[in-house]
Simulated assay, not measured.
Amino acid sequence: MIQLNDNDRGIVLTYEASPSSIHFLDLEITTTHDRLEFKTYFKPTDRNGYIPVDSCHHRRWLESVPRSQFLRLRRNCTRDSDFYLQSDMLKTRFLDKGYRPSLVDDAINSVSATDRASLLQVKPKVAKQESFKWSFFTSYSIQHNEITPARTLRNFILQWLAVSTGSVQYFGEGTTIYVLENGEVQRPPTVNIFGPNKQEFKDHKLISLVCVASGFYPEHVQLNWIINGIPRNGLYQNVASKKENDTSFSTSKRLTLTRSEYFNTENKFKCEAGFIGNGSVAFAEVTGESDCGVSKESYAMYINQGKISYIMVLFKSGLYALIVLAIIWRRKVLSGSC
């Protein structure tokens, strides 16, 4: 050991040898009357490093810290006397960190009533039951251009995958098959159109309408914007359908308009929603508004006109001041010459 400690790295090794007790990890193990007894071992360098109660952690998490530490003592200590002795020491440390005395006492009383043998038992891991959803995809084939009846395809999928799925199945471009879960039926969406934020009228040259479809099942619904009977193409795709609850979904799509399009009472903006391949099943429609406010361009023009008027007033005031000074100076000159 002397040779090992003779190094220039500052490493000091120690060892212990005892026929009756030994320290192992956080345990002090003692032999008494041909049996082993345990209690928690605290190193000489151990300090009160428990987290203060006024830290920015979640309150419920902080309140569970004392109980978890007392459970550790209860599990480690063979003798009840050792548990109560070490609990008193631990209680002092928690009080120093600001924990409520009632909280610490309740934790001690609760843990004291716990059977130590139950804490030493290995709890079996319970496998979580997870539900899986399978998707079935194939390359396009002329043989699968039309699938009739749908029940035949469903039986084919169940035969090979042995699952029931609520996912949409694709057989090439343009062919969509839905396999509904047992007991579920197709439910149409509810469509609503939300107008623009009033701040857009001042800060932007473009105005947005948002179409929201909700309460539908299954999840694949397509939204389309139509202006005065003409579909508006080139828009962003639907926002991916989000699950509202266990049995319904929602999605949205934005329509961007110019000010001249939106502020026109003759324009009609229609949002249609429908399941892929089934056409429109629900819609909502709004009419353009009349422009009663001041546009951003007009507002800027008024500001510029105000600036010009202000500059002209300053110029006239300065010219008037010069004229007055000239008159005063002339009178002083004339009075001095007399």
Rank of each mutant, 00 (worst) to 15 (best):
G172S: 05
A107I: 03
S241T: 09
D105M: 09
S112E: 15
Y15K: 07
E272V: 13
A213R: 04
K123N: 09
I157W: 06
Y140W: 04
L90V: 11
D96Q: 12
F38D: 06
N7T: 01
F70M: 03
S18P: 02
V212F: 11
R67L: 07
Q86M: 03
H33G: 03
L223I: 10
T165S: 09
L71F: 14
E200T: 02
R47A: 14
L85D: 14
D291Q: 09
D80P: 13
L334Y: 14
V185E: 00
P101S: 09
A321D: 09
S20P: 00
F171T: 12
H58E: 15
V324G: 11
G229V: 11
Q237G: 11
D106S: 12
L325K: 13
G279Y: 03
N192R: 15
G49V: 10
P149R: 04
I157D: 08
R59K: 06
P188R: 01
Y299T: 01
P189A: 02
Y310E: 13
L255G: 06
L257M: 09
I29T: 03
P196M: 13
P101I: 08
R232T: 13
P231V: 02
Y236I: 12
S118W: 00
E130V: 15
S55M: 03
T14S: 09
S248P: 05
C292M: 10
E63R: 11
I226Q: 03
Y50W: 09
K296L: 12
T45K: 00
A117T: 07
I51G: 03
P124D: 09
I227L: 10
I327R: 10
Q237K: 10
A213K: 02
H23K: 07
Y41C: 04
P189Y: 02
V185Q: 00
N304F: 05
E285V: 15
I323G: 14
A127E: 08
H204I: 05
E261Q: 08
G174E: 10
W61Q: 14
I11V: 08
L27C: 08
F283P: 02
E200F: 11
T256I: 05
H57P: 13
T152G: 15
W61D: 12
A150D: 04
Q169Y: 02
C56V: 15
N192M: 14
F137I: 00
N48L: 10
R259P: 15
I327S: 07
F249I: 04
V333F: 14
F283W: 12
F249L: 04
K133W: 12
E285L: 11
P124L: 07
V168H: 08
C77Y: 08
P44L: 00
V122A: 00
T40P: 01
A240D: 03
Q121G: 05
S298V: 15
S131A: 13
Y84K: 02
R74G: 10
P196V: 09
F171H: 14
L319W: 04
Y262R: 07
T265Q: 14
G49F: 06
N48Q: 08
D80T: 07
Q159F: 14
T265W: 13
Q186D: 00
Y310M: 10
